[in-house]
């Protein structure tokens, strides 16, 4: 994976548009997952996902490859989400609750590939209810706790990689993970105990 990334990155740096497109296709779902899990809104997550790749495209010529490409792209995604938080805080932006806590998979607002049809209505309801509770619990975490938890639990990054992406020490990663998990366990005690 990393070796293929290196080749694609080198080709993209040389102006090969096909290589850049391949990098987008390769990472779009991972980037979207990070962004969506941090900002909990599909439309905004789609926009921010595109913005991540815009930044990648813009800064690719200066990417020296001292870190892996995926670490670099995750760092960009996390920074864009942090910018988003800051701006939202400044604007006292009110989230639409139906987006934040409602069933995000309503197909009219969240276009999906048709796999939902294989699920029973009851199963789907239960899953959506659980998903809403988990999203709500995650949304309540402070952004700095949420981001390390997401990078660890969803992306499987090592402590060192998380430290590199977020720009903090490994000790801080461990501390934030500990607090994030503790809060999540407490809020989801019904499901984890």
């Amino acid at each position: 994976m990393e070796a293929e990334d290196k080749i694609l990155v080198q080709r993209a740096k040389e102006g090969d548009q096909a290589a850049f497109k391949e990098l987008v296709l390769r990472y779009q779902r991972k980037v979207y997952m990070i962004v969506y899990s941090m900002i909990s809104n599909h439309q905004e997550a789609m926009d921010k996902t595109q913005e991540v790749f815009l930044r990648v495209h813009r800064h690719l010529p200066s990417f020296e490859g001292t870190s892996s490409f995926y670490t670099w792209i995750y760092r960009i995604a996390v920074n864009i989400c942090i910018d988003h938080y800051r701006r939202r805080k400044l604007q006292s932006y009110e989230y639409d609750d139906s987006f934040k806590h409602g069933p995000a998979l309503q197909e009219e607002v969240f276009p999906v590939v048709s796999s939902a049809s294989r699920e029973t209505p009851t199963g789907r309801l239960l899953r959506e209810e659980l998903a809403a509770k988990i999203r709500a619990a995650l949304d309540k975490l402070p952004p700095k706790h949420r981001q390390v938890l997401i990078l660890r639990e969803l992306e499987g990054l090592s402590y060192q990689e998380i430290a590199d992406v977020v720009g903090i020490s490994i000790g801080t990663v461990m501390s934030r993970l500990f607090h994030a998990r503790k809060k999540m366990q407490s809020r989801l005690s019904h499901y984890v105990n």
Binding site: Q28, R29, Y32, M33, Y36, H42, M46, T49, A104, L105, F110, P111, V112, V113, S115, A116, R127, A131
Partner: peptide, 8 residues
């Protein structure tokens, strides 16, 4: 699961 089903 959610993200797997999102059309990107």
């Amino acid at each position: 699961e959610e993200v797997r089903r999102v059309n990107l």
